[in-house]
């Protein structure tokens, strides 16, 4: 079997070239569209009103914004995972959680997450004593967690502290998904590892939430969707980052001392 090690320098150069094409190409397209819009006064070319929002009806604008924010969030997750070295449940979970937090507001999102997580793990610890098989047990936990979210919303609404629309479908999906990942990781690698990963996911999600809550950023992404090409270019560059992660400096601290 002939196996030739790929020349790393060559690979690096290729990646740099593609990334440069993406980034500079996107900037060029953006400027071109901006330039054209100065001369052609037409609804669909006007840079001052985002063309994405002229395509979609107003009631869908929130969803369109969420979609263009996903690549930005993924860039942040990739940085945290590959450069900083924080572990998260999957790659997209922190992004989806951040978008869910945007819909529910930070505090109520966290209340949902923590409360249903606590209820879920309480149920799970009792189920394990009954010697229930894995998949039915997990399904019971998720059922209880989803129902508890409904109850929390009803209770909070009854007290008059929240309007009912805080109960967004996305937040239920994301939180249920997170509880499943947490339970599986807890079984596979122990509670400590699961808590560490949950904390990492939450931390990254809050950072992304802090970035995407600025309307300027989502507005810019709607105005210039070319930015997604720039993000792809940056992700390509991160894909060739082979240096140590920040957490590895800590892990290998005894070796570094020498």
């Amino acid at each position: 079997m002939a196996k030739i090690k790929k020349d790393t320098d060559l690979m690096d150069r290729r990646v740099y070239r593609i990334a440069a094409i993406l980034i500079f190409g996107a900037v060029a397209i953006g400027f071109f569209r901006h330039f054209i819009s100065l001369f052609i006064i037409s609804e669909s070319y006007a840079v001052t009103s985002p063309w994405l929002s002229s395509i979609f009806p107003p009631e869908m604008h929130g969803q369109v914004t969420s979609v263009v924010l996903i690549p930005l969030g993924l860039l942040v997750v990739t940085m945290f995972r590959n450069v900083v070295g924080i572990s998260t449940f999957g790659t997209s979970t922190p992004v989806l959680l951040a978008i869910a937090l945007r819909e529910t507001s930070l505090i109520f999102g966290l209340i949902f997450l923590i409360a249903s997580g606590l209820v879920g793990s309480f149920v799970r610890s009792h189920l394990s004593r009954l010697h229930i098989l894995l998949i039915p047990a997990l399904s019971i936990v998720l059922t209880v967690a989803a129902t508890s979210m409904l109850i929390i919303v009803l209770v909070l609404h009854h007290q008059g502290s929240v309007p009912l629309d805080y109960f967004s479908p996305l937040s239920i999906v994301v939180i249920t998904w997170m509880i499943e990942r947490f339970a599986i990781l807890q079984l596979e690698s122990g509670t400590r590892e699961a808590l560490k990963t949950a904390a990492g996911t939450l931390f990254v999600a809050i950072v992304i939430y802090g970035i995407i809550r600025f309307h300027l950023i989502s507005h810019f992404l709607l105005l210039y969707p070319e930015t997604i090409l720039i993000i792809t270019g940056l992700l390509l560059l991160l894909g060739r980052y082979t240096g140590l992660r920040w957490t590895e400096y800590y892990r290998f601290r005894d070796l570094m001392k020498k």
Partner: peptide
């Protein structure tokens, strides 16, 4: 120290 990190282990 010529330390090998996870990124380099995976990529190279």
């Amino acid at each position: 120290t010529g330390l090998l990190g996870l990124n380099r282990r995976n990529a190279s």
